[in-house]
């Protein structure tokens, strides 16, 4: 459908606020970041030394590699656990049971929390001295894992917190996807002889695949970028860098250690990596995603 505008200037004027915002808040800072990544910058930004690609080559250190691995492991865990658990929850929430509205609300509301609040809750709940979960764990196993000193356990705790926060988002989308599958298809499969498991694998899951792809990408982006607040509140990248994901390291180097040039280089690398990952996901998806 085409519209004819009464004046030639009007469309540009109407678009201009959005364009201005995108340029000012996205394009220009990105270009600045690219520019600064070739410099060493003083904290107050008053001095710049040109260092060519030093900032980038300095990334080839064990610390950065560690961040990389932590990020991949963490995001992988969030994506896998998140999608699997949330799909199961959505299937459960898709039934006509009494009180289903209440269960759904209970599943969805954590998404409304800010990452900082979610991080605080989980930090408190797992606090080795005073946390409720820590208490139960010590009752059950006799040991009290301390996420301030135990790297792997810290990763587990932030994975739980991050995944928990996304449950609402994932469940809503999966529910919506499930509800677009016509009941008759499931019934036809039932008559054809498919039990619940086969019905899920052969009918529900393939028809859910566009939604699954969407959530795969969103959860990946979430794990790479949006967990920053959670980690800042809980572990600040520790202990011993065990939870120092790429975006957190970037934040710390840039805003706390005030190494602006170095952090800019990291942001470029991170951007390139995530862009590449997303493209890969789309490519790979062509094979298993079915669009109606």
């Amino acid at each position: 459908m085409q519209s004819k505008f009464p004046s030639r200037l009007l469309p540009y004027l109407l678009l201009s606020p959005s364009i201005v915002i995108v340029i000012v808040f996205l394009i220009i800072p990105s270009l600045q970041s690219l520019y600064l990544s070739f410099f060493r910058v003083s904290p107050f930004g008053d001095r710049l030394i040109y260092v060519a690609i030093d900032n980038f080559t300095n990334l080839l250190t064990p610390d950065y590699l560690n961040s990389f691995i932590v990020t991949v492991v963490f995001t992988g865990a969030v994506v896998v656990v998140g999608l699997v658990v949330c799909l199961a929850l959505a299937l459960a929430a898709n039934q006509k049971v009494a009180g289903i509205g209440l269960y759904r609300t209970g599943l969805i509301w954590p998404y409304a929390l800010s990452p900082a609040v979610a991080g605080t809750i989980w930090a408190l709940v797992f606090d080795p001295s005073t946390g409720a979960f820590s208490y139960f764990i010590s009752l059950a196993s006799g040991a009290m894992p301390n996420w301030r000193t135990n790297g792997p356990f810290a990763v587990v705790v932030i994975t739980l917190a991050a995944t928990w926060k996304m449950v609402g988002y994932n469940v809503i989308f999966f529910l919506a996807g499930l509800q677009t599958i016509p009941r008759e298809l499931i019934e036809a499969a039932e008559i054809d002889g498919a039990g619940p498991l086969k019905r899920f694998w052969n009918i529900t899951f393939p028809l859910l695949s566009p939604m699954t792809l969407f959530l795969l990408i969103m959860n990946t982006l979430y794990g790479f970028f949006q967990v920053f607040g959670l980690i800042d509140v809980m572990t600040e990248g520790g202990p011993a860098r065990a939870t120092e994901v790429l975006v957190y390291k970037l934040y710390y180097d840039g805003f706390i250690s005030l190494k602006t040039g170095y952090a800019s280089a990291q942001s470029i690398v991170l951007f390139a990596f995530v862009a590449g990952l997303t493209l890969l996901q789309f490519r790979f998806a062509k094979r298993w995603v079915f669009y109606q």
């Binding site: 000193t149 790297g151 520790g238 202990p239 011993a240 180097d253 706390i256 250690s257 005030l258 190494k259």
Partner: peptide
């Protein structure tokens, strides 16, 4: 100058030593 980052480096080193890494 870079005292904040240096403190962070120390914290990490202490964590590694205390954890036995």
């Amino acid at each position: 100058g870079p005292f904040v980052a240096i403190r962070q480096a120390f914290k990490t080193a202490l964590e590694k030593s205390v954890q036995g890494q």
